[in-house]
Simulated assay, not measured.
Amino acid sequence: MSSFPPADQTSNTSFYSQSDTVNVSDILGNVDFGSAQIRELAGLGTGKLGEIEFVQVDDVPMTAGPIASRGVLDDLCYGTGTTYLAGLSFGGLWGLVEGTRGPNSNFKLRINTVLNSVTRRGPSIGNSCGILAMGYNGINGVITTIRGRHDAVNNIAAGALVGAIFKSTAGIRAMSVASVVCASAAAAWTYTFRHLQ
């Protein structure tokens, strides 16, 4: 039935003896990776009491206050992300309230109305808030770089400019209103931020 001859068990064991077998514990048994060896391999040295007290990520100093910042790009990313999420949440709640107030008595139609309202309001308001925050932080960074200091004047000017640019296609009146609203919001944020420090 089988064309292969039976394996000779004695010939296989003659090549290897029990003493030639190597286990993982044999390899790693004599290796000692204590904290001193790991610290030495990483090039950290031994500080006071052999502990690392502080590792600085980069050379850019962080600003003090409730929201630590490393600079313009950090503010741009953090501000855009948090403002987008806040706008998305607010728009979603607005859509939820708007959808539940509809005249539909059928449960499936009411659920469909709520979902449509949430998905229409949430992303729309979130995107608008994210664009405003990105423009505000970008303009604020440019003004800060040009003036060489970061103060309330930069924040209010950036708010006014981003509001005017955001509504620039809607006419002079809408531009003026958006500019005043965004400058007021920037002034309120600056005032609150200064008093939280």
Rank of each mutant, 00 (worst) to 15 (best):
P6Y: 03
P6T: 00
S14L: 03
F15I: 08
F15Q: 06
F15M: 07
Y16K: 12
V24P: 14
V24Y: 15
D26S: 10
I27P: 11
L28M: 12
G29T: 07
G29M: 03
D32P: 10
D32G: 05
G34A: 02
A36K: 15
I38F: 14
I38D: 02
I38M: 13
E40Y: 11
L41W: 15
A42H: 14
A42L: 14
L44M: 12
T46L: 09
G47I: 01
E51S: 09
E51T: 12
V55C: 12
V57K: 11
V57C: 02
D59T: 08
P61Y: 06
P61L: 01
P61C: 00
P66F: 13
I67Q: 01
S69N: 06
R70S: 12
R70I: 00
R70M: 01
L76T: 06
G79Q: 00
T83Q: 07
T83E: 00
T83G: 10
A86P: 02
A86S: 06
G87W: 03
L88M: 07
L88P: 02
F90M: 01
G91V: 02
G92E: 00
W94D: 01
G95Y: 03
G99W: 09
G102H: 08
S105G: 13
F107G: 01
F107N: 04
K108M: 00
K108H: 10
T113M: 02
L115Y: 14
S117E: 03
R120Y: 15
R121E: 02
R121G: 02
S124Y: 14
S124H: 10
S124R: 12
I125S: 02
N127Q: 05
N127L: 13
S128G: 14
I131R: 10
A133T: 04
A133W: 04
A133R: 11
G135N: 03
G135S: 07
G135M: 06
N137Q: 13
G138L: 07
G138Y: 12
N140P: 05
G141W: 12
V142G: 10
T144V: 05
T144D: 05
I146K: 14
R147H: 11
G148T: 07
G148P: 10
H150I: 00
A152Q: 05
N154Y: 13
N155P: 08
N155I: 01
G159E: 01
A160H: 09
L161S: 06
L161M: 09
V162A: 03
V162I: 11
K167L: 08
K167M: 10
S168T: 05
T169K: 15
A170I: 03
A170M: 07
R173K: 15
A174Y: 12
M175E: 03
M175F: 13
V180D: 00
V180H: 13
A185N: 07
A185G: 13
A188W: 14
W189A: 15
H195S: 04
